[in-house]
Amino acid sequence: MQTKRTIFRSRGLPYLLLAPQLAITIIFFLWPAGQAVWQSFLREDAFGLKTSFVGLANYTRLFHSPDYLNAMQVTLVFAVSTAALAMILSLLLAVAVDRLIRASRWYTTLLVWPYAVAPAVAGILWWFIFNPTIGIMPYVLASVGISWNHLLDKGDAMLLVIVAAAWKQVSYNFLFFVAGLQSIPASLREAAAIDGAGPVKRFFTITLPLLSPTTFFLLVVNVVYTLFDTFPVIDATTEGGPAQATNTLVYKVYMDGFVGLDLGSSAAQSVVLMAIVISLTVVQFRFVERRVTY
């Protein structure tokens, strides 16, 4: 592909045009990130009276802390389950809508709505639905003999945050899957039908492989989402409990830093998260550009 190059007469103008974006990036991203890195080498008392340089002590303590290792495990379970649930659900919806001819735009519009709901509001919504005292779902579940209490049961709590977080993400995935499905020429599926493949076989041998660029992109986006953007959902539903069962890495950063006031450890945790997101991004760019295009 040929890129069009614009030639600027003065050397200053391009920099001037870039300046606002650069300023935002520097002030709101690079600077705090740099501060976090610096902070992660420091140790501060709870009242902020004394700060001392401790080198990598925050990190070594972190990786020896059972709480942190637990948070990692929780995050892994949470991220994988949420991404899987959100993607499978949205793919099913997308396939269903793709089969419609007339009403598909209506369904698409309706299915996109959850994305517009603020994460904290979504969290509250699910909190109400599943509230063991006043919620409708525990009542319904109790009538079929399932006792639900996410305030006491670790499994219930995890399930709740997974459902709440996945629900938010389904809309986003759905849109991409619908677009992906519509970009597969109908003649391919027709050719496969003539070639003797039934609907299920067609889906798994033709549609799914051709969707793989979309699927891979969404996988990375969803994992990043569950790792970093699910703070409001967790804060509004379980607050990391019970007994740390839903305390993910990003929620722990907040708890340790702003609630526990252990700023050094919190900063170290942020740096670890930063490293994770950077490596995920690298993986995405490498893969998307190479393997999954046709």
Binding site: S187, E190, A191, A192, P209
Partner: peptide
């Protein structure tokens, strides 16, 4: 045989 050949690209 289709106009756009409809070969399975993968």
């Amino acid at each position: 045989v289709f106009q756009n050949y409809a070969l399975y690209p993968h």
